[in-house]
């Protein structure tokens, strides 16, 4: 009786597990099949950028790379991304210090509100900044206004990453450095920055990828220029060309590799240090001999 029961339970468990597995596969497919198809079509010789697959080619990549509009959009995208990265890394890192270390009243509230732009829809940020720039300051929309808009959105990510690293920072190290004769600047230069460095780099890479494929805020604020996402958008209005597929594939590859780098930076730094540490005692023994 009991054994039979156990059998039933085991069978039931198997069915549930198989069901959950199938569900997981479905979700994965839902998330990734469209992207996979887009990548697939970018290598398809068929000039309508869809099934059937009539042959394999790199022609669309050639076409995309020699299209001066695309070249221009890539250049704009990179320029914007670099500027956004610089601004949000410096501002975000600087902001993380008082948020973690000061005894400001309402520190929790200040921190929450500073990281709020992550939750605010890009549409709102875009519209708000548009009216702020044009109505209030009579600014001409340009690459620079787009940079500011994206920085509003990207900075909180840097704050989050750097702040969480700073939380775990042993302040006694700074006291020790001070005891050994380091003034504020030297403490920052030799102790604090090297130790939070991986987090700052990770934050910068996040900002870079966020900027690279940011669309809504940029659309409102960039005026007559095109970043890559905006160029793609204007192209697909007239139907999806294989060329767009190729550009999108390259954009995905770039974003993915940068975000992977961002996630891997702390680990890579740690590994490199350990490697150095185990490699060097040998050399010192050589020196001593």
């Amino acid at each position: 009786m009991a054994a039979e029961n156990a059998d039933v339970v085991a069978r039931h468990r198997r069915v549930v597990r198989a069901g959950l597995g199938a569900w997981a596969v479905l979700i994965y497919a839902f998330l990734f099949v469209p992207i996979a198809l887009l990548m697939l079509f970018s290598f398809n010789a068929n000039r309508y950028g869809t099934f059937p697959i009539t042959g394999w080619t790199l022609h669309w990549y050639e076409e995309a790379l020699s299209n001066y509009q695309i070249q221009d959009a890539v250049q704009t995208s990179l320029q914007v991304a670099l500027e956004v990265t610089m601004i949000s890394t410096v501002v975000g890192t600087a902001a993380a210090f008082p948020l973690v270390r000061s005894r400001l009243p309402f520190r929790g509230g200040i921190r929450a509100s500073l990281t709020l732009p992550i939750l605010i829809p890009g549409l709102l940020i875009g519209v708000a900044l548009l009216s702020y720039f044009t109505n209030l300051f009579n600014l001409q929309l340009s690459i620079q206004t787009a940079v500011i808009g994206q920085a509003v959105y990207a900075t909180p990510f840097v704050i989050l990453v750097v702040a969480s690293r700073l939380e775990g920072f042993d302040r006694l190290l700074e006291r020790a450095a001070s005891d050994l004769g380091a003034d504020t600047w030297k403490r920052l230069r030799y102790i604090v920055l090297p130790l939070i460095g991986p987090a700052v780099v990770a934050g910068a890479l996040f900002a870079f990828t966020l900027s690279l494929d940011e669309f809504i805020i940029t659309l409102f604020l960039i005026g007559g220029h095109n970043t890559l996402p905006i160029y793609i958008y204007t192209q697909v209005k007239f139907g999806i060309t294989p060329e767009v597929n190729a550009v999108a594939t390259m954009l995905i590859a770039a974003s993915l590799s940068v975000s992977l780098l961002a996630f891997a930076t702390p680990t890579l730094v740690r590994l490199a240090r350990r490697r150095l540490a185990t490699a060097r005692p040998g050399t010192s023994a050589g020196r001593a001999a």
Binding site: D170, L172, L173, R175, A176, A177, I191, P194, L195, R273
Partner: peptide, 9 residues
């Protein structure tokens, strides 16, 4: 210092 506070890097 009690916990030494050596610079880990």
């Amino acid at each position: 210092f009690q916990s030494y506070a050596l610079f880990p890097h």
